[in-house]
Simulated scan of single mutants.
Amino acid sequence: MTEIHPDQRVAVLTDSQNLYHSSQSTYSRKINYTALLEEAVRDRALVRALAYVIRADSPDEGSFFEALRDIGFETRIKDIKTFADGSKKADWDVGMSLDAITLASHVDAVVLCTGDGDFARLCSHLRHEGVRVEVMAFGNAAAEELIEAADEFIDLAEDEETYLL
């Protein structure tokens, strides 16, 4: 696959829920999205940075969404769904996948910031289309099939002081 070079066009797709749960369960800390985006781009030409978030009516979420936009992310916001039995569901797997496939013809590399193994098939598809795929996640919370499907895996746990607040 293509190596990283300054003329590369890159898209960064961030599964904020996945990163949040990974960082909270292991470190009880929040993600440093500025550092995450800087590492994902690495002196390349950023085409799009998308952060997929869930609106759950928590007190600080509005300021969090605004902070993501200030950093340079476009936010994709989905409301959490509550079912009759009280269970809740909200994920962006299909939306992220569709955006990645749509962007594939406009970029040389896609960086997926998630540890969700459901994206392994997406990685394979993008690579088949000639797009370099990089995954950024905490290694202890990343699915092995996702790591194996990517051209490069960046383990956020190896530099937790950079990627955690």
Rank of each mutant, 00 (worst) to 15 (best):
A104W: 02
L36G: 03
G72L: 06
E38R: 12
V53S: 15
D57Q: 15
A67E: 15
K88V: 12
V110K: 00
D116V: 03
R55I: 06
H106E: 15
V110P: 01
K81W: 10
A100S: 09
R55M: 07
A84W: 03
D85L: 03
D60H: 11
G117T: 05
I101A: 14
T114C: 09
A120I: 00
W92A: 12
F153P: 13
T34F: 01
A100F: 04
T75G: 10
Y33V: 01
F64Q: 12
K81M: 13
T102K: 14
V131C: 07
V107D: 00
A109L: 05
G139C: 09
D118W: 00
I77L: 10
H125I: 08
A137I: 04
A67D: 14
T114E: 08
F64E: 05
F119V: 00
E74F: 11
K78G: 07
V41A: 03
F65G: 12
G139L: 06
A49Q: 10
E144T: 13
D116F: 03
I77S: 05
T82G: 06
S97C: 01
F65V: 12
V41E: 03
E61C: 05
V131K: 09
R127V: 06
E145H: 14
V47Y: 13
Y52H: 15
F119L: 02
I80T: 05
C123E: 06
G139N: 11
S58L: 14
K88S: 12
D116Q: 03
L126S: 02
R132T: 05
N140A: 14
A143D: 10
F64R: 12
R76F: 14
L98Y: 08
L36F: 02
I77H: 07
R127I: 06
M136F: 10
G62M: 12
A51D: 11
T34N: 02
L68M: 12
K78L: 12
C123F: 04
A49Y: 07
D118C: 00
I80D: 02
K78N: 07
V41R: 12
V53H: 11
K89D: 11
D43T: 11
R121V: 11
A137V: 03
D93Q: 02
H125M: 09
A90S: 14
A90L: 05
S87P: 10
E152V: 15
A141P: 03
R127T: 03
D151P: 13
Y52F: 15
D43Q: 14
V135E: 04
L126R: 01
A56M: 09
A149S: 15
D60R: 09
R42L: 04
E66P: 01
S87I: 05
T34K: 13
V41Y: 07
L36H: 02
A109S: 11
S58I: 13
K89L: 10
V133M: 03
E148T: 14
E39S: 13
F64W: 06
A143N: 06
A137M: 06
L103H: 08
A120M: 00
V135H: 09
G117P: 08
F83M: 04
F83S: 04
P59T: 01
H128Q: 15
W92R: 05
G72W: 09
D93V: 06
F83W: 09
A56D: 14
A150C: 13
D91H: 12
A35V: 00
A51V: 12
S97A: 13
T75H: 09
H128P: 02
